[in-house]
């Protein structure tokens, strides 16, 4: 099994780094956003001690994980299905586990590269420190990656073409970016919106990381955010168990 998993993983990775448009959106854009917004901003909202670059760093990481998970996997699978590539792979002995496992593993590696780059810029350029639990941060990123990759796969199960996938991913992107505590807190939002925002997976991810990036939170203190992401992962798995299929009969 390993030979095919490894080749598929390599193949997925080759396709990611050879696609310069994808590289632009996956690597350059989040880094540019982080640099540009941090440079022109002062302090974090409602704080005199925390700079905006410190506030923004975990938000940008959360946004990157969210977008890589949803857009990268959703559009990728929709494209492969629509063009008949999945069908070509399904006439081989390739198992669903190998196919999906390699897709997910390659994207987790991409996320690791993206996050490593952004954190490096934060630490070396903006002199950000990370006083909280490193383990909590890693667990948050892994859980967040799994949730959003699952959402991306769910989108590809519903949508047969780009045209069908685009509205779904756009709505999700707007919702998560606007309400996800990425660029600004949602404390002063209307009650209903504040409630919705507090339950979103990207909020658990962003706020969980922020508490460890800015404060010296422990793994135990981060548990509620991890459990929140765990609950979302369960929801995604349940949805996928009903909707996920690679072949059409």
């Amino acid at each position: 099994m390993f030979i095919s998993f490894w080749q598929l993983f390599l193949t997925n990775f080759r396709m990611l780094y050879r696609n310069w448009r994808g590289l632009f959106f996956n690597i350059f854009l989040p880094v540019f956003l982080y640099l540009a917004i941090s440079k022109i901003s002062g302090n974090a909202p409602g704080s005199h001690t925390v700079t905006y670059s410190e506030y923004l760093l975990p938000g940008i990481i959360a946004m990157t994980i969210m977008q890589t998970g949803i857009f990268s996997l959703a559009y990728w699978l929709v494209d492969l299905k629509a063009r008949g590539v999945i069908k070509r792979l399904l006439v081989t002995p390739l198992s669903n586990f190998e196919m999906l496992g390699s897709l997910i593993a390659s994207r987790l590696v991409l996320m690791a590269i993206q996050i490593g780059l952004i954190i490096s810029i934060g630490v070396w350029y903006f002199k950000t420190s990370i006083p909280g639990s490193g383990l909590a941060i890693v667990l948050l990123m892994l859980m967040g990656g799994a949730v959003f990759l699952g959402i991306g796969f769910a989108v590809s199960s519903f949508a047969k073409t780009y045209e069908e996938a685009a509205p779904i991913t756009t709505i999700l992107n707007l919702l998560f970016t606007f309400l996800g505590n990425i660029f600004f807190p949602t404390e002063n939002f209307p009650t209903v919106l504040k409630f919705i925002a507090s339950k979103l997976p990207v909020t658990y991810l962003a706020e969980g990381m922020r508490n460890n990036f800015i404060q010296d939170w422990t793994l135990k203190q981060t548990l509620p955010d991890l459990l929140g992401l765990g609950a979302w992962l369960l929801v995604v798995i349940v949805i996928l168990s009903y909707t996920a299929k690679l072949k059409q009969d």
């Binding site: 030979i3 095919s4 080749q7 598929l8 193949t11 080759r14 396709m15 696609n19 792979l89 081989t92």
Partner: peptide, 16 residues
């Protein structure tokens, strides 16, 4: 799959 050469595709299919 896009961005792969004929050689790379054959190696991939053989691995499957």
């Amino acid at each position: 799959l896009n961005y792969l050469s004929l050689e790379e595709l054959l190696v991939l299919f053989a691995s499957l």
